[in-house]
Design a binder for these strands. Structure first.
Length: 178
DNA sequence: CGGCTTTGACCAGCGC
DNA sequence: GCGCTGGTCAAAGCCG
């Protein structure tokens, strides 16, 4: 890389903004691909190596300018075949035409009304099982929603989810009665 | 040509 | 108070 260029870049830089706490939803998907189609279009804006995992974490943002939903995608350090997708925020729009996948408008609309990641259950070619942990159905003081999805046995993944503590996410009011 | 990915650096929060 | 880590930005490059 050109150092001169890098120096020039640093001059114009001014980022590192606040960290707004938004509702997050974590999903565990057993898949060989990192980026699962969920009916929305995502733009990758960053990738970082995280401490607890040998695999880098990718950061995506919804391409819809009016939509502030973000998502993090990382692989489980214990089972590389498990992809942990964490959604932050809620979509303020329906899915786009699903240019790259096999989504029907009905399913896409359904996903848009619930949570984007739910649509992953319809990921073509994979049979996902959704497992909602007790803390979800019976939210108490901490509105935590933990969803584990896998197209294999949910047992190990459930264990993983709890062990890693990666799925402790806040559920927005509108999401609880689903 | 437009959109998306890559990549390095910056910033803020948190823990020690 | 300092250092570490995570999260975000923005320019350049690549691809369709």
């Amino acid at each position: 890389m050109l150092t001169a260029l890098a120096a020039n870049k640093s001059k114009v830089r001014k980022k590192g903004q606040k960290r707004i706490r938004q509702p997050r939803f974590a999903f565990m998907t057993k898949s060989e691909v990192d980026h699962l189609e969920d009916g929305y279009r995502w733009r990758k804006y960053g990738q970082k190596a995280v401490k607890n995992s040998p695999f880098p974490r990718s950061y995506y943002r919804c391409t819809n300018s009016k939509c502030t939903v973000k998502k993090r995608v990382e692989r489980s350090s214990e089972d590389p075949t498990i992809v942990i997708t964490t959604y932050e925020g809620q979509h303020c729009h329906h899915t786009v035409g699903f240019p790259r996948g096999g989504f029907s408008s009905h399913e896409a609309g359904f996903a848009g009304q619930l949570t984007p990641a739910i649509s992953q259950f319809y990921y073509p070619g994979a049979h996902f099982q959704r497992e909602i942990l007790p803390s979800i159905t019976q939210p108490q003081h901490v509105p935590v929603r933990e969803v584990v999805q896998s197209h294999s046995l949910p047992g190990p993944t459930t264990q993983l989810a709890t062990d890693n503590g990666l799925l402790g996410d806040i559920v927005p009011p509108g999401m609880r009665n689903t």
